[in-house]
Simulated assay, not measured.
Amino acid sequence: MWWIYALLSAFFASLTAILAKIGIKGVDSDLATAIRTVVILLLAWTIVFYKHAGAGLSGLSRMNWTFLILSGIATGLSWIFYFKALQMGKVSQVAPVDKASVAITILLSVLFLGETLTIKTAIGAVLIIGGTLVLVL
């Protein structure tokens, strides 16, 4: 079942690039990121309230808070740089380079989470990096 959500994520990430490229014409990329962030904030809290999941706030540990905040900072920086890249480059080049994050994530998951690096996963990461280099060069 997880793969259905992953495919939906990929589809909406793809739409994000196309819609953002159209939306940032003549707009400062940081302003565009801020507007997008407000929309995401409203959407996320609407879902939390709809599902009555807000009660879970009291159960969050200091570690939960720390790493969720750090994740939010990383996401924000990613979006800022992504929108700047979209404003300056072609979507067909920016989006695939952004997806090099998949290969970086594989490496970081091995280093920091202790996940096993299989030969299949390693080959996939190398192919992603190779494809990224082809698009950049």
Rank of each mutant, 00 (worst) to 15 (best):
K21I: 08
S9F: 02
I47F: 13
Y50K: 14
R36Q: 12
D28S: 07
L31P: 06
A17K: 00
L42K: 00
D30F: 11
F11H: 00
R36F: 10
A10W: 09
I35Y: 08
S29V: 04
S14R: 10
I4N: 11
I24Y: 06
F12S: 13
V38P: 01
F11V: 02
R36E: 12
D28T: 01
V27M: 11
T46R: 02
W45M: 02
F12R: 10
I47D: 09
A10G: 13
A20R: 01
T16K: 06
V38F: 06
I40W: 13
V48I: 10
F11S: 02
A6C: 13
L15F: 09
L15N: 12
W45I: 02
Y50I: 14
W45Q: 06
I18H: 09
I47E: 12
L7R: 04
L19S: 06
I40A: 15
Y50T: 15
I18Q: 09
T33P: 00
F49H: 11
T37A: 08
Y5D: 08
L31R: 05
L41Q: 11
A13S: 07
A13G: 12
T16M: 07
Y5F: 14
K21A: 09
I35W: 06
T46I: 05
I35A: 01
V39C: 15
V48K: 02
A34Q: 05
S29C: 06
Y5R: 02
F11I: 01
I18Y: 13
A32G: 03
L43Y: 00
A13T: 07
W45V: 00
L7K: 01
I47T: 12
F11T: 01
D30W: 14
R36H: 07
A6R: 10
D30L: 05
V27Y: 13
L15I: 09
R36P: 05
V39A: 14
Y5S: 09
A44L: 14
T37V: 08
I4V: 12
V38M: 04
F12A: 13
A32C: 06
A32V: 01
L8F: 05
K25E: 13
I18V: 15
I22V: 10
I24V: 14
T16R: 05
R36L: 12
I18F: 15
V39D: 10
K25W: 09
L42F: 06
L31D: 05
T16D: 08
F12W: 13
A17R: 00
A10V: 14
I40D: 12
I4H: 07
T46K: 00
S9C: 06
I47C: 12
L15H: 11
Y50H: 15
I47W: 15
I18C: 09
G26D: 15
V39F: 15
I18G: 13
G23M: 05
L19H: 03
A17F: 10
A17E: 06
L7H: 05
K25I: 14
S14T: 11
I35L: 04
L42V: 04
A20W: 03
L8W: 07
Y5M: 15
K21M: 09
T37W: 01
I4K: 02
L43E: 04
F12L: 11
I18S: 14
L41H: 03
L31W: 02
T16G: 07
I22E: 07
I24P: 11
